[in-house]
Design a protein around this nucleic acid. Structure first.
Length: 277
DNA sequence: CATATGTCCTGAGAGC
DNA sequence: TGCTCTCAGGACATAT
């Protein structure tokens, strides 16, 4: 599911557990396939049990759980991962849960239907190494327009697939790349190296506006319904999508064009055929 | 069969 | 030749 706004929504929904002490952590019994991770469950239990959850950070589309004693769990939800404090989306897809002392069952649970998600046990040092090895770029909400331009403007590929490159800017995924380019009135097939300074400014401003608005509306719940803040609380931003999955409709921004679908780098892109030049 | 929110790996080609 | 960077394509796993 998650792009930056959905991961930030998940972060906020489990933030009440900051300050609590871990009672137990472990895999669910009913999981389908083993969770992909860099340590065994006994190792993770030894590292995390009894520790206090100090902070939950978001880096692009990843969540970083910091515990006392410099122990870190980093979760990559990838396509279908979901981090929830409440609710049972599908008992079959529960991958692990953390229970907290003295809270009568308060927990953080990781659900993942497709099983592409990954979890890493790290410390400060190995987290830094991980981020530099995988070249995670600046977060989309923090990056300056100069840095965005520096990271992308020499490239010959189209702007829309370029925005999905997490090394250039971290957090934008397939939904918000289409949405922000519509807001910026830039055609998704324009090559990065052909964009003007004024267009980079619009892309940068609209990226932050669209992502912040999506966070405000608690992310996008698509037709498959997998992303939600809790079982009875879907996101709302899908109702504000101007182009994503809106093929054939009139563009709500210009009121003149029609929303079209195209395929770029084997992924769907939607855009207005009138106002995006 | 086609579609689906993400990331990692491989290999070809370009340019120095 | 060889190094680095870019870019295209596929794999991963499951559901509709």
């Amino acid at each position: 599911m998650p792009e930056l706004p959905e991961v930030e929504t998940m972060r906020r929904s489990v933030a009440p557990s900051v300050g609590r002490r871990v009672e137990s952590i472990g895999p669910s019994r009913c999981r389908k396939k083993p969770l992909k991770m860099n340590a065994s469950w006994p190792e993770i239990r030894r590292a995390i049990n009894g520790k206090q959850l100090k902070k939950i950070e978001r880096i692009g589309k990843r969540l970083v759980f910091r515990f006392s004693g410099d122990r870190i769990l980093m979760v990559e939800p990838r396509m279908s991962g979901l981090i929830l404090a409440e609710g049972e989306p599908n008992p079959q897809s529960l991958r692990f849960e953390i229970l907290f002392r003295g809270t009568r069952g308060k927990r953080i649970a990781f659900w993942d239907q497709r099983g592409l998600g990954q979890v890493f046990l790290l410390d400060d040092q190995s987290l830094s190494e991980f981020l530099s090895r995988s070249q995670v770029g600046p977060d989309a909400l923090d990056i300056s327009v100069e840095k965005l331009r520096q990271n992308l403007a020499t490239r010959k590929i189209a702007i829309k697939p370029a925005l999905l490159d997490q090394k250039a800017v971290a957090g934008v995924g397939n939904i918000y790349a289409s949405e922000l380019l519509n807001a910026a009135r830039v055609h998704p097939a324009r090559r990065c190296c052909d964009l003007t300074g004024y267009e980079w400014k619009r892309i940068h401003r609209c990226m932050q506006q669209v992502l912040n608005s999506a966070i405000h509306h608690e992310g996008s719940t698509l037709r498959d319904g997998t992303f939600r803040r809790s079982l009875d609380r879907p996101g709302n931003y899908q109702n504000l999508h101007c182009v994503y999955d809106q093929g054939g409709k009139v563009c709500p921004r210009c009121g003149k064009g029609t929303i079209k679908r195209m395929v770029q780098a084997q992924r769907s892109t939607w855009y207005c055929d009138h106002c995006q030049k």
